[in-house]
């Protein structure tokens, strides 16, 4: 068992985690700038680091990454003490637990696109359930098909982007090699 802060190629795991968190925030900032015609629909590109690192980081490190993403987005967008944080936390952690579970279940037989689709759909379902409880009431289920449909599309996009990056990025290859040999 290695130390949680062991140096890998001169970079500590903690530093890598901080960097990945920063990438998530950076992507969240890009998404924040894109026009959102409908309030309940998001691209979710800030989830790319989570999808990308699913096979590389330990689960507790993925939990840290998810928590920093949620809190960081709340801090940067200013929604830290609002219902938005609750939605973000429920969506992110549901997606993470689902993606980790399907990865464990299906292994590499499922591509990152498939993993991301599972994460996006369960995340949207959980957020829909939450909006029934606190935002829109029982009638929120009416928009279920639309939310799940767009969730499927954005989940596909996130998975595809992650898969492309994973297969072509030199940086990712180096990080994975360092972490796997750790």
């Amino acid at each position: 068992m290695s130390s949680p802060n062991k140096e890998i190629h001169g970079v500590s795991r903690r530093r890598l985690l901080a960097f990945l968190s920063a990438i998530g925030l950076f992507l969240a900032a890009i998404e924040y700038l894109l026009p959102k015609p409908v309030p309940f629909i998001r691209l979710g590109i800030s989830n790319i680091p989570l999808v990308l690192m699913l096979d590389v980081l330990r689960f507790r490190e993925l939990l840290v990454l998810a928590a920093v993403k949620v809190l960081g987005q709340g801090l940067i967008n200013g929604t830290l003490v609002s219902y938005v944080l609750l939605f973000s936390a429920v969506g992110t952690f549901t997606a993470l637990f689902t993606m980790a579970a399907v990865r464990r279940l299906f292994g590499l037989r499922l591509s990152l696109i498939g993993v991301s689709l599972w994460g996006a759909l369960t995340s949207n379902l959980a957020q829909l359930g939450l909006s029934v409880l606190i935002l829109l009431g029982e009638n929120a289920w009416v928009i279920g098909p639309v939310i799940l449909g767009t969730g499927g599309a954005t989940g596909f996009l996130v998975g595809w982007l992650a898969q492309m990056f994973q297969s072509r990025s030199v940086w990712f290859r180096e990080v994975r090699r360092a972490l796997v040999s750790d």
């Binding site: 903690r14 985690l17 901080a18 960097f19 968190s21 920063a22 950076f26 920093v68 809190l71």
Partner: peptide, 13 residues
């Protein structure tokens, strides 16, 4: 940790 994240975030921006 958050300070470190913000440092990298700034570099990326």
């Amino acid at each position: 940790f958050w300070a470190e994240v913000l440092g990298y975030y700034q570099r990326l921006l």
